[in-house]
């Protein structure tokens, strides 16, 4: 028996939308601690890892130790787009039904003594669970900046080049690209905004390095403005994947690991 409820269906929709940028389907792993979703994109360049802890939900109940539900994200997203923003989202699953394996999605809107209800059932699919996990890493470099700023730069660069070069230095980040026709060059500096801390840029770069990333991945990560207006990027070097994370309340959030491009 699984049942979880959320008063902000928009946030869950944003999470699923972000995942569906790279992944068609993935296992939703429900445990007593909450929901975890993780998957590699088909090119094996980006790994998406989402945690929605039990306390992140308004109500959460999972009787099983671990429940693995294979979900088609595109279909789930279609369903979630049908939910009004002012509704209560409820996900449920009954595992005593041998015939049909489906995740029920319900939206309820209070109408005084009565409730308007819309119900959907998402047929589940079998997906082999990942047999590997992310190793423990000691991040030596970290940068925190407004998600909107990263989005703006990645969007601009995407107009010129499929590849962006990030040069992390102790006191600046240079983001650039070049094509046959043009070049673009952005400099981002540490900055404390005393009136609005969310505008600040903080960097702690112990070992400066340079890495190239595929622009459209960075652009899609930066679409998580609704999840957190701040993005944290953790790094070691050009050979180790970079981590982009967008945290939410109660230890929840979305994080991505992305493999860089090596210069010959």
């Amino acid at each position: 028996m699984l049942e979880c409820k959320l008063q902000e269906p928009k946030v869950f929709r944003s999470v699923v939308e972000a995942m569906s940028e790279h992944i068609k389907e993935c296992n939703f792993e429900f445990t007593r601690e909450g929901l975890k979703m993780q998957a590699l994109d088909s090119s094996h360049i980006a790994f998406t890892f989402v945690t929605l802890s039990a306390t992140w939900w308004n109500e959460y109940r999972c009787d099983d130790e671990a429940l693995l539900l294979g979900v088609n994200l595109e279909t789930l997203l279609k369903i979630l787009k049908c939910g009004p923003d002012n509704s209560l989202l409820a996900l449920s699953y009954e595992n005593d039904d041998d015939e049909v394996s489906e995740l029920k999605v319900k939206f309820e809107v209070d109408r005084g003594e009565k409730k308007d209800v819309a119900e959907f059932a998402l047929k589940l699919t079998h997906i082999d669970p990942m047999e590997e996990e992310v190793p423990e890493l000691t991040w030596t470099n970290e940068l925190e900046m407004p998600t909107q700023e990263l989005f703006r730069i990645a969007r601009d660069i995407s107009l010129f080049s499929e590849i962006m070069v990030l040069e992390f230095d102790k006191d600046k980040l240079r983001i650039s690209c070049s094509s046959k026709e043009s070049t673009a060059d952005y400099l981002v500096h540490p900055f404390e905004d005393s009136t609005n801390a969310s505008n600040s840029v903080r960097m702690n770069i112990e070992a400066p390095f340079k890495v190239s990333l595929t622009t459209h991945y960075v652009l899609s990560f930066a679409k998580n403005k609704n999840i957190n207006e701040r993005v944290v990027i953790k790094m070691i070097d050009a050979e180790t994947p970079l981590m982009f994370s967008f945290s939410m309340k109660e230890g929840s959030g979305i994080c991505y690991y992305i493999a860089g491009r090596l210069t010959d």
Binding site: E132, E133, A259, D264
Partner: peptide, 14 residues
């Protein structure tokens, strides 16, 4: 030119 790395060798067995 740069060469895209993948995450194939990044993960460790559970």
């Amino acid at each position: 030119m740069s060469k895209q790395q993948t995450l194939a060798s990044f993960f460790k067995p559970k």
